[in-house]
């Protein structure tokens, strides 16, 4: 089988991005974009379709099994994990690879996602007191522990931009775990932050839910956290009361 990658590239110190097209042959029906990039980078001679030399394609990866969020990028325009994207699943003859657009591009497919971490710091997202994990809160605490900080949900969200006041689901998910484990008193200041940076800015279209590569129950956590911080506790999804 053969596919053409159109890769949007950028040198480190350069401003301008450019596209390079590379032909790639493969046999394994499960071949992923991640492995294709590894194989291309391993070639002794890398050439584009016109025969021009191609430098090593820079991208980030770590686990290669959908569990670390490192390899998020735009694949045919849609945010996803390169190690989760099967070449055979794309019906097109070319597959376009580009860096996520909401974050500054470092080089090629690598973006600087530090805003995710800055936002959580800004919200002071940590346990201020001793955790009080009630049995009915277990599922939510577990689910809220699963975020990869990959940024796919932010990429798709119409309301998020880096540096803006709305922090998106990449902040909501970890905060949901903390809210669940804090007692009512210790929860107060985080609730304030939650209202300011998550509740008030979210249009609730839930485009983010379908894109999350970890398939986190974003809707459930959102309802749960909204219930804990804004509405009446009786409306909680996870565990109920």
């Amino acid at each position: 089988m053969v596919v053409q990658f159109d890769i949007l590239r950028k040198e480190k110190k350069a401003e301008k991005q450019y596209t390079q097209s590379i032909r790639y042959e493969y046999e394994n029906p499960n071949e992923s974009v991640a492995n294709a990039l590894r194989q291309i980078n391993r070639r002794q001679e890398r050439k584009d379709i016109k025969g021009n030399p191609v430098s090593v394609i820079k991208w980030e990866c770590s686990c290669l099994q959908k569990k670390c969020g490192a390899c998020a990028m735009l694949i045919n325009g849609k945010p996803g994990l390169a190690c989760d994207a099967r070449l055979a699943a794309y019906k097109t003859e070319t597959i376009r690879l580009a860096p996520l657009r909401k974050f500054p591009v470092v080089e090629d497919l690598i973006v600087d996602r530090s805003i995710l971490y800055e936002n959580l710091k800004e919200m002071e997202a940590w346990l201020a007191g001793q955790p009080e994990l009630r049995e009915q809160g277990y599922e939510a605490a577990y689910e809220g522990s699963r975020c990869l900080q990959c940024g796919c949900c932010l990429e798709i969200c119409p309301n998020f931009y880096a540096g803006g006041n709305f922090f998106g689901m990449a902040s909501m998910v970890p905060v949901a775990r903390i809210l669940e484990e804090l007692n009512e008193n210790d929860r107060k200041s985080l609730i304030k932050e939650y209202k300011k940076h998550i509740y008030s800015g979210c249009g609730k279209s839930l485009a983010c839910r379908n894109i999350c590569p970890a398939q986190i129950d974003i809707e459930g956590l959102l309802l749960n956290s909204n219930a804990l911080s804004v509405w009446k506790a009786g409306l909680r999804r996870h565990g109920g009361v």
Binding site: C63, G69, C147
Partner: peptide
Amino acid sequence: QYSERAQSV
């Protein structure tokens, strides 16, 4: 890379 990407996860 960030801690979320460490093998420990």
